[in-house]
Computed example of a mutant assay.
Amino acid sequence: MAKIVVITGAGAGVGRASVEEFARRGYDIALLSRDPQRLERAAADIRAKYGVRALPIPTDVADAQAVEAAAARTEKELGPIDVWVNVAMATVFAPVSTLTPREFERGTQVTYLGQVHGTMAALARMRTRNCGTIVNVGSALGYRSVPLQSIYCGAKFAVRGFTDSLRSEIIHDHLRVHLTMVDLPAVNTPQFDWAKNKMGRRAKPVAPIFQPEVAARAIFFAATHRRREVWVGFPTVKAILANRVAPALIDRYLASAGYCGQLTDEPLPENAPDNLYHPVSGDYGAHGRFDDQASPRSWEMFTDRYRNAFWALAGLGVVGCLSLFARGRRS
């Protein structure tokens, strides 16, 4: 029998790419997002391509009752949930001085509380069966914040704190539920076209950029391997480690580079739609408009996937070098 996965933010971006990845692996999928038409198209696509069952459930993850209802419907129509993936997010590109309390509230409700709601709905069911996996999607920006994204960065920091607290509780309760977190780099998704933007110029991801399929493969890997955390892409590793070494220096660097690095020279169209409160209609998929700049693979993710073999080869290399050195000393 096929396994069941629930994916939030499934209508576009990393969520949509994750739907494709899990369907390709034979999973039946419940797709959660706000736009009904986009969900229906995504569900029809994977049914036709992979022959899996797909259940689109229009859901605003900021609404805890709606998420709980989606979980109940999934188990009723598809079966017990094996994997729950929290991807949905919302943000605003703007300095704090121009943001409103309501914008902070909404962005936090979706990006942080959406993951809390999903995790709670999944865990309530997995706890009774004492099995299952929950994947929370984080970001390098959950370790090293950048200007113009205080809502998103704050929410991702919160996701990390929540996940670490819950992980200890799961260990304390001796549950065989696996909780993991996948931290992403800059990804080529539609968020840079539909995130609310008060800067007057179109937003862009900070290079190097990765395709959403890279993130999706990492999410699937985290869901099927016992990793506490997965860092995707060397930029994520670099941002996390560099911030531990020289945070004040990075503060000053980002004070200038953090602005121009996230904005193009293109003016933002007047009355540009945004998805903070309502979904943006249109034929959006996994990819954004940066295909010509985005990498389809991550060397760091490759080494993480095969880390045992990688370290074994590295160890053999060290042993070989020491052996040659010792032989040279004897001669």
Results as ranks from 00 to 15, higher is better:
Leu123Thr: 03
Asp304Phe: 03
Tyr27Glu: 07
Thr59Arg: 05
Asp28Arg: 10
Gly26Glu: 07
Arg176Gln: 13
His174Gly: 10
Thr98Trp: 14
Gly233Cys: 02
Tyr277Asp: 10
Gly107Trp: 08
Gln115Arg: 03
Lys196Pro: 00
Asn197Tyr: 11
Ile151Val: 13
Leu241Cys: 09
Asp292Arg: 04
Cys153Gln: 00
Gln115Ala: 15
Ala309Pro: 04
Thr91Met: 06
Ile7Asn: 00
Gly11Cys: 06
Leu166Lys: 07
Pro235Trp: 09
Ile57Asp: 15
Arg106Asp: 12
Arg144Asn: 02
Leu123Glu: 04
Tyr50Gln: 02
Ser165Asn: 06
Thr224Lys: 09
Ala62Glu: 05
Ser150Leu: 05
Gly317Glu: 11
Leu148Asn: 04
Pro56Asn: 15
Pro147Trp: 00
Asp283Leu: 09
Ala272Ser: 13
Arg330Phe: 05
Val232Gln: 00
Leu175Lys: 06
Leu241Gly: 09
Arg226Phe: 10
Thr108His: 13
Asn86Cys: 14
Arg125Met: 13
Gln262Phe: 12
Glu270Phe: 12
Arg38Asn: 10
Thr133Met: 12
Leu268Trp: 10
Asn308Met: 01
Arg327Thr: 07
Ala94Asp: 01
Asp63Tyr: 02
Arg227Met: 10
Arg297Thr: 06
Ala255Asp: 11
Ile57Thr: 15
Ser295Thr: 06
Val116Lys: 02
Thr180Gln: 04
Pro273Trp: 02
Ile209Val: 15
Thr163Met: 04
Pro80Lys: 01
Glu40Gly: 04
Ala248His: 14
Glu270Gly: 15
Arg144Lys: 05
Leu184Ile: 04
Val116Asn: 06
Gly107Tyr: 08
Thr303Cys: 08
Pro269Val: 13
Ile219Asn: 02
Asp291Val: 11
Asn188Met: 13
Arg53Ile: 08
Leu55Val: 14
Thr189His: 09
Leu141Tyr: 03
Lys49Ala: 08
Gly11Met: 07
Leu31Asp: 07
Ala309His: 07
Val67Cys: 04
Pro205Leu: 14
Thr189Cys: 12
Glu21Trp: 02
Ile209Cys: 09
Arg252Asp: 11
Asp283Ser: 07
Ala195Cys: 09
Arg167Val: 11
Ile57His: 14
Glu105Thr: 15
Tyr253Ser: 14
Asp45His: 02
Ile250Tyr: 04
Asn130Ser: 09
Arg202Pro: 00
Gln115Lys: 08
Leu179Ser: 00
Ala222Lys: 02
Ala66Glu: 01
Tyr253Ile: 15
Val92Ser: 03
Gly315Cys: 12
Asp60Met: 14
Ala309Val: 13
Gly258Ile: 00
Asp35Phe: 12
Lys238Val: 11
Arg228Asn: 07
Phe104Glu: 00
Glu105Ile: 15
Arg167Phe: 05
Asp28Ala: 10
Phe310Cys: 03
Phe210Arg: 02
Val110Ala: 07
